[in-house]
């Protein structure tokens, strides 16, 4: 029975991490940059659902997605696009700056006190196991998102163009692909996924502060690296790996205080043993 609970928790936590990790990995693969402000998009989504929830839960979710996507587009256009072709270090520092900007803006407009919501989704009883409805929705939603994204990338023109740009930007341009447009689409998808993850996290922990996105953000980044940064299936696998570690640690009282340490230790081990991550490919440097 505990095993079933662990699997369900692992899927739910892992699905959330995977949704965030997909944003990191797609932006890395396509725009060739680490978007360290990605975690703060989760925070933006979290605040939005808290503010709009009293109106209607559905409107809250939609508002979260719309607002996060808007912030993602504005950040891409104003902060990252002007740096296309700049040194990776300049882009990285800019991303950290954007992260601080988003956190500080949240503090200015919404104050430094955490905002909370309480909403009980209830439980359902399956056999002798009682599962929270929120956990089930999280699992179903993250699976749906991952399937949809996989189909989008494989079977649409824009999706295939994303693969082409991530593999060889110059050759993609020779096909007539507008690279800036593809990068924009990537930010839109990544921000929408972060918004959905943010909504689930808020319902789980029930309050949101300005650094709300930091920890899930860094863990999802670790998940993306474990799975192989740049690889979409890799981000899903990496997310689930961390999710299951967290679920297992949560079930074992002796391990649970060390959950974070164990997760990051696994990251270090993976980097030592297979630096490209589980599904990452070593790219040949062209000369």
């Amino acid at each position: 029975m505990e095993i079933i609970m662990t699997i369900i928790n692992g899927l739910s936590i892992g699905g959330t991490y995977a949704m965030i990790a997909l944003g990191y990995t797609m932006v890395y693969g396509i725009a060739k940059m680490l978007n360290f402000a990605h975690g703060d998009i989760i925070m933006v989504g979290g605040y939005t659902i808290v503010l709009f929830f009293p109106i209607s839960p559905i409107i809250g979710v939609i508002a979260s997605v719309i607002f996060c996507v808007t912030v993602g587009i504005v950040v891409e256009k104003s902060a990252y696009k002007p740096l296309r072709g700049a040194s990776p270090l300049a882009v990285l520092i800019t991303a950290i700056g954007v992260s601080k900007l988003l956190q500080s803006s949240a503090q200015i407009f919404l104050g430094s006190e955490p905002r909370g919501i309480t909403f009980n989704f209830g439980n359902i009883q399956i056999g002798s196991v009682s599962i929270s409805v929120l956990t089930l929705i999280t699992i179903l939603c993250s699976v749906a998102v991952m399937v949809a994204l996989t189909l989008f990338v494989k079977y649409t023109k824009t999706g295939r163009a994303m693969i082409a740009v991530s593999e060889d930007r110059g050759a993609a341009q020779l096909m007539g692909i507008n690279v800036n447009f593809i990068i924009m689409i990537t930010f839109i998808i990544g921000s929408a996924l972060a918004a959905i993850a943010g909504v689930f996290l808020v319902f789980k922990v029930q309050d949101v502060g300005t650094t709300f996105g930091a920890m899930p953000g860094i863990k999802a980044f670790a998940a993306a690296v474990i799975g192989g940064i740049g690889s979409i299936p890799g981000a899903m696998v990496g997310g689930l790996v961390l999710g299951f570690i967290e679920a297992i640690c949560g079930m074992v009282p002796a391990l649970s205080p060390y959950t974070d340490a164990i997760e990051f230790a696994i990251l270090i081990i993976v980097l030592l043993v297979k630096p490209t991550g589980f599904l990452g490919k070593k790219r040949r440097e062209k000369v």
């Binding site: 023109k157 295939r160 163009a161 693969i163 082409a164 593999e167 060889d168 110059g170 050759a171 993609a172 341009q173 020779l174 096909m175 007539g176 692909i177 062209k286």
Partner: peptide
Amino acid sequence: VKLGMTQVPEGRRIFSELTVYENLLMGAY
């Protein structure tokens, strides 16, 4: 490219993760 010219780049630079069919389809982007 839209104006009507393109290039077969040095070193071929095909999209190695896509299938042959998908590569040709990218040509018709």
